[in-house]
Amino acid sequence: MKAAAFAYERPSDLKAALALMAGARGSTRIIAGGQSLGPMLNLRLVRPELLVDIAGLAELKQVDRGGDELVIGACVTHADIEDGRIPDVTRGAMRRVAASIAYRAVRNRGTIGGSLSHADPAADWVCALPALGAKIRLRSTRGLRELAIEDFITGALESALQEAEIVEAVRVPVMRPAARWGYVKACRKPGEFAHAIAAVLIDPESTGARVVVGAIAAPPIVLHDAAPLFGGRVTADFHRQFDARIADAMLAKAGVTNAADRHIHVAVLRRAIAEAAA
């Protein structure tokens, strides 16, 4: 199938893009790498009147290493992260997550900001970044605002992005040396929609455990303090304290009614915890 007709603009800078968005009438969509939107356009599931292409905007391809964080422009691609073309403050975690997204040819165009805007609950960044404690920076002519990733993803394919607002950057905090990271997803083959995703960042010395369970039919479950999963306290032997029953109950409460689904999610979570402990 071929896309329905639309108009197309390629603004020269961010300011022009924001102005274009603010002045647009009718249905307007932003496109960057187009790796999520492209298939939907071709299937005519999405029929915008105007596409605003921000892939060329230099402001969105910048990366700044601040004191305790890395600010990644929205149009940085998965391949940029995978290849280490940008600094890594997550001790390899983001590079590994990036490398597991879809396929290389897709990663060469797909962007971190685009992936978050699409808000697919089975997407890697949607699940990994909340565990890393990342924030998202949104820009419009009205100004700038910033949200935690988990507050940005509001539903399956739904985000807090407002009219004429653009994802500008993602802020990723530096991972502490003592922190342990685990990221596991269940797919039958590379590139398939994940059936379950678990991301864990465990730092027994300070911040405790942050756990994300994703690829459910809703925003990921984000536990800022996952101590209850480990018997109430995150200790050095946390992986031995993991209580699958609590995880199962948590999933049931989150609306995962099917027992096989819960079983798979819990198994994936257990593995992510084991990976963190390894």
Partner: peptide, 21 residues
């Protein structure tokens, strides 16, 4: 050649200078 020696950031095919639309 790691990363096939690509240096530019952003989607391949998107020129950083942007086009005049």
């Amino acid at each position: 050649l790691p990363g096939a020696a690509r240096e530019q950031l952003g989607p391949v095919g998107s020129t950083s200078s942007a086009g005049d639309g």
